[in-house]
Nucleic acid binder design. Structure first.
Length: 485
RNA sequence: CGGGGUGUGGCCUAGUUGGUAAGGCGCGUGCUUUGGGAGCACGAGAUCGUGGGUUCGAGUCCCGCCACCCCGACCA
């Protein structure tokens, strides 16, 4: 437990969740504030976590047939304005370049809030025939959205993400692509970040400006609030029409292709923090942890130090004997600090396993293995551990996912009336599955009166005749209500 | 943009009726240490968020601005 008044002590999660979050991000050295309002500096440890999920998602994107590309940061005003709903939706958040080279520009340039507009315009010459389709591209880039209120990783003025943009000959193929994008996000969230998600469709009022519909994954944080973890949009022919993209189909008729776009951002670093962390700091899933095992040597005299060093060397050599073992990210902390200091240091940073090796362990040919998530300690023979470590990391990863699933399940409730929703949210927060008629007016009323939003219409919500909690109108299925980030 | 709060070495804080900035942590060097945030000694480090104003004199009083945090509206 952190000592009272210790300089690096962090706010308790239960006392002040946002305060806890900030402490973890700043003191865990994931990110820092920047001289620019609302923007963040991602530090090495935080960036390593981003790179890990980025690599994983990039592999999925490539495996599903998308090529990485790059389009400009600047979007001419006229292009951004072509799709009416799109402009209207994004205008309040766009940063404009109005001057350059010491002179006012003839045409303002938007700093991309997203790239649909410039991509649609750019590809119109590439798509002539059905033979040019599908066109499946992906960009890793930064975008800027002028946010009123920012939070490190969760919502920053500039953020890093990936945007996939695809064009298809048929509506059906585009719809399948929307599912492909969402599935990638589900896989990375659940299998890589150990964050269980609820897949569903956004209500019309929550969909992407310019899309026909938006699919999303929603995740529960440890304060029981929801976080939108990724979105996949069916753009229909909206942008193709606006940009005049046409192709000649097999039936010799000129048609607009169907588009999709999907994005996944640095917000997911924040999701990982908030989905697993505890009062001691981060709890990272092994797959994303920049350091998976930290070895803390313990010794008094030089002879002891030498013996401990030898045991560590042998352990690492044994670990490196298999390809799987070699891939384990191990760090030996030889710094000239006390063991207790190092324990706290690495716990704050969420390292899954700590291996303490001292003179007593060397004598017994073992090490003391401590699991970050529950602080359980277990003496393990070092040679055995070298063989088992990859499997233990997999088990840890699976346990973390299960723990998050259990937490989500425990805090998800079925309610049938508006009053139950309000009372439940007031009393304990969480996710609420409740009947809704589908009318935006009812959705808006709940939001205005309580701040609760419909996160999505979950795909696995079974057909169930019911009465809308607001208007008593007929409801076909329950939808997910929650407070959200 | 509205409501609330905070700004003093890297971090946490003290600073009296206004008198020229103090302590702890951290940092550097040396020695002693090391199984849950080690000890001693010496040392470096501050235009008190910022711009004005009042005053002989401002960290302190007054006004403006900025940044950050919390709550709300906008949103990945």
């Amino acid at each position: 437990m952190p000592k009272e008044g210790f300089v690096n002590s962090i706010t308790r999660q239960s006392e002040d969740f946002p305060g806890w979050y900030n402490d973890v991000v700043l003191k865990g050295e994931l990110a820092d504030y920047s001289p620019v309002r609302g923007c963040m500096i991602i530090r090495p440890y935080g960036y390593a976590i981003w790179e890990s999920m980025q690599r994983e998602l990039d592999a999925y994107i490539k495996a599903t047939g998308h090529d990485n590309v790059y389009f400009p940061l600047f979007v001419p005003k006229s292009l951004l304005e072509k799709e009416a709903e799109h402009v209207e939706g994004f205008n309040p958040q766009v940063a404009w370049v109005t001057h350059a080279g010491g002179k006012p520009l003839d045409e303002w340039l938007a700093i991309r809030p997203t790239s649909e507009a410039i991509i649609a315009d750019s590809v119109k010459d590439w798509i002539q025939s059905y033979r040019d389709l599908p066109l499946k591209m992906n960009i890793w880039n930064n975008v800027v959205r002028w946010e009123l209120r920012t939070r490190l990783f969760l919502r920053t003025t500039e953020f890093l993400w990936q945007e996939a943009h695809t064009f298809h000959a048929t509506k059906q193929e585009a719809e399948e692509e929307v599912a492909t994008g969402l599935e990638g996000y589900r896989q990375v969230s659940e299998e890589w970040l150990a964050i269980p998600v609820i897949e569903g469709r956004k209500t019309d009022s929550e969909k992407f400006p310019g899309a026909d519909f938006t699919w999303c994954i929603e995740a529960m944080m440890r304060d029981k609030k929801a976080l939108q973890a990724g979105t996949s949009h069916m753009l229909g022919q909206n942008f193709a029409r606006a940009a005049d993209i046409e192709f000649l189909d097999t039936d010799n008729v000129r048609k607009h292709p169907f588009g999709t776009s999907w994005g996944f951002s640095t917000r997911m670093v924040g999701a990982t923090i908030m989905a697993h962390g505890d009062d001691s700091g981060l709890v990272l899933p092994p797959n994303v942890a920049p350091v998976q095992v930290v070895i803390v040597p313990i010794f008094r005299k030089d002879e002891e130090k030498a013996a401990v060093a030898e045991a560590i060397d042998k352990f690492q050599a044994a670990l490196a004997e298999t390809p799987e073992g070699k891939a384990v990210r191990v760090k030996v902390d030889w710094r000239d600090d006390s063991p207790g200091f190092k324990y706290n240091h690495w716990e704050l940073r969420g390292v899954p396993f700590r291996l303490e090796i001292g003179p007593r362990d060397v004598a017994a040919g073992q090490g003391m293995l401590v699991k970050r998530v529950d602080r359980s300690k277990e003496p393990v023979p070092l040679m055995q551990l070298a063989a088992e470590l990859p499997a233990r990391l997999r088990t840890y990863q699976a346990e973390l996912l299960q723990r998050a699933r259990d937490f989500q399940a425990e805090n998800t409730h079925k309610v049938d009336t508006y009053q139950e929703l309000k009372d439940g949210m007031e009393a304990e927060g969480g996710f609420y599955m409740a009947p809704w008629c589908g009318d935006a007016k009812c959705e808006k009323q709940v939001n205005e009166e309580t701040g609760i939003t419909i996160r999505c219409i979950p795909f696995d919500s079974p057909a169930e005749a019911g009465k809308c909690i607001v208007c008593d109108g007929p409801s076909e299925r329950r939808v997910l209500f929650a407070r959200a980030y």
